[in-house]
Simulated assay, not measured.
Amino acid sequence: MMFCPECKGMLVPVGGKLKCRKCGYIEEATADKSVLKRTEKRDEKEIVIIEDAEQMATLPTIAVRCPECGHDIAEWWLRQLRSADESEVRFFRCVKCRHTWREYD
C-alpha cells in the first residue's frame, strides 16, 4: 500500500494516478511502485453439484444417545423459540435414524 507523504492517508488509484482521500494529494503511478494489477482473464472455479442434499453434513455433531434407536451420534442446533430473556432450545437429530428431539435448559 502506498501512503500520502503529507497526511499519511492511504493513496488509492484514480485514473492511472494515486490520490489521497484525505487531503487530495496526487502522485503519478510509476512502474516501480506496486499498484493494483488489472487482468482481463477470469479464472473459472470448479462447481460441485450435490445430488442429495440430505447426504451433505452441514451441522455439528455431538455424542448423545438417541431415544429411538440408541445410536450415540447426533447433529445439533439451537433456536430461540420463546422470548429473548429465556434460554434457547437445543435440537438434536440422530445421524442413523433421523429422529429429532429437543432439550430445554
Rank of each mutant, 00 (worst) to 15 (best):
D32T: 15
E86C: 00
G15W: 15
E103R: 10
K8Y: 10
I26T: 07
M10E: 09
A31L: 13
I62S: 06
R93C: 02
R82P: 00
G24A: 08
E46N: 03
R38V: 10
K17P: 07
Q80A: 09
V35H: 12
A29P: 05
R65T: 06
M10L: 04
T58I: 11
D32R: 15
L81D: 03
D52Q: 03
G24F: 14
S87Q: 10
Y104W: 13
E86I: 05
C23W: 10
P13L: 14
A29G: 03
E28M: 14
T58E: 12
C20L: 08
C7D: 11
E75I: 00
D72T: 01
V95I: 10
S87T: 01
M2N: 03
V95E: 07
Q80W: 15
S83D: 08
S87V: 03
F3R: 00
E6I: 03
E44Q: 05
V14S: 06
T61G: 09
A57P: 01
H99M: 08
T39F: 15
T58F: 15
W77V: 03
L78S: 08
M56S: 00
R98M: 06
V64S: 06
T100V: 09
C69V: 04
A57L: 06
E103L: 11
V89L: 11
I62C: 08
P5K: 13
A84M: 14
L36T: 05
L18W: 13
R98L: 10
E46C: 02
V89P: 01
I62R: 11
C4G: 04
R21C: 02
E27Y: 10
M1L: 05
A31V: 10
F92D: 01
K41Q: 07
G70F: 15
R90I: 11
I62Y: 13
K17Q: 13
E54F: 13
M10Y: 05
E54V: 06
T61F: 13
R21L: 10
E6C: 01
K8D: 03
A63G: 03
D72I: 01
L78Q: 10
T58Y: 15
V89M: 11
G24L: 14
G15L: 15
T61N: 09
C97V: 02
G24K: 07
G24T: 03
D105S: 09
E27K: 11
S83V: 09
S87K: 12
I73D: 07
C23Q: 03
T58M: 12
R21S: 04
R93L: 04
S83F: 14
P13C: 12
T58D: 13
E28R: 13
R38E: 14
A57T: 02
C7G: 05
R82D: 03
L78D: 13
